[in-house]
């Protein structure tokens, strides 16, 4: 379990990093960006991937900031999960961050793993990919060709596949603030504490939005992990209005879970319905407890 040979680069600026990526791509070389390494290094050690070049961005200044505004939270590429988890202001603006980060692996992995790195890894079992999709966030990518912002819906294109080009570096991710009055929750079921979830559901509910004629009284959206090829987001407002059984039916019809050695597709489909209802209930309870108001005050 030792990696195949690779060449290591240690740029000090984003410009150097993307220039390196561009040069390697031009030569037809396979390069990977190394941030926290919590997914990449095991894959290298098991020789499941043998990139000839690693661009280590840990020495780049300015990629480790968490910027909180009333609009949302911008997370730099070198922000570790643990830093974001304990960032009080970020979690007031978007409580889903902490609710989900608590379930990301274990403390030692959160100390090193980066949130943006896990997004770039685009694992449909990742909690943070689900949160980015559910909150309608985006990833900012830089290359020698310039900078672009990629919405979550366009960022995740397949299992372990993002729309980042080979010469692009994800420099930050943006998670929009929770809407005023909203309640959020994140629940999942894993075989062991901290494992990849068999299924997981994040929920955002906004009670009392009955302004539109005929619209449901409660706005309900859920994001799912481990049950589809890319993070799935469902608007369950109508289903919730029709009752919990409708939510379970809607969820079970929409997801496409797979069999693996830990759980069958059937079981995943079954529990995802249950977890969706539990997440919505918990999010409503959080909204009722003033979570939404508190957020609003914090950002206002």
């Amino acid at each position: 379990m030792k990696p195949a040979p690779f060449r290591m680069y240690a740029p000090h600026t984003v410009a150097q990093a993307v220039a390196t990526l561009a040069a390697l791509e031009a030569e037809g070389q396979h390069a990977k960006v190394l941030a926290g390494g919590q997914s990449l290094v095991p894959v290298l050690a098991m020789r499941l991937a043998e990139p000839g070049h690693l661009v280590d961005i840990n020495g780049i200044a300015g990629l480790d900031s968490i910027d909180v505004s009333s609009a949302g939270v911008r997370v730099g590429a070198l922000v570790r999960h643990a830093e974001l988890l304990r960032h009080a202001a970020a979690n007031r603006v978007q409580p889903l961050l902490g609710q989900a980060l608590n379930l990301v692996a274990h403390a030692t992995i959160r100390n090193r793993g980066t949130t943006v790195g896990s997004l770039a890894h685009a694992d449909p079992s990742g909690e943070m990919t689900a949160v980015l999709a559910l909150t309608g966030g985006s990833v900012t990518a830089v290359s020698v060709r310039g900078e672009r912002e990629i919405p979550a819906a366009e960022f995740f294109v397949g299992p372990l596949e993002s729309s980042l080009a080979a010469d692009e570096l994800a420099v930050s991710a943006f998670f929009p603030a929770a809407p005023a009055g909203a309640g959020t929750a994140f629940v999942e079921m894993a075989r062991r504490h901290g494992d990849y979830a068999l299924s997981g559901v994040g929920a955002v509910v906004i009670p009392g939005r009955s302004g539109d004629e005929g619209a449901p009284a409660i706005d309900v959206r859920c994001g799912f992990l481990s049950v589809s090829e890319t993070p799935l987001v469902l608007d369950l407002s109508d289903a919730w209005a029709a009752g919990e059984d409708s939510v379970m039916a809607a969820v079970r019809a929409a997801i496409e879970p797979q069999d693996d050695i830990h759980a069958s597709a059937d079981y995943r489909r079954h529990i995802t319905g249950i977890l969706a209802v539990r997440a919505i209930r918990e999010a409503l309870a959080n909204a009722g407890n003033g979570q939404g108001d508190e957020q609003w005050e914090a950002t206002a």
Partner: peptide
């Protein structure tokens, strides 16, 4: 509750790592 060697019908061990062979953590 957790540990099982998952062989497929070709005799390939499907969970030859601590990621997929579930030794309980202290939390379990």
């Amino acid at each position: 509750l957790y540990e099982k060697m998952e062989y497929d019908d070709d005799g390939q061990l499907q969970n030859a790592s601590f990621m997929d062979f579930l030794m309980p953590y202290v939390t379990e």
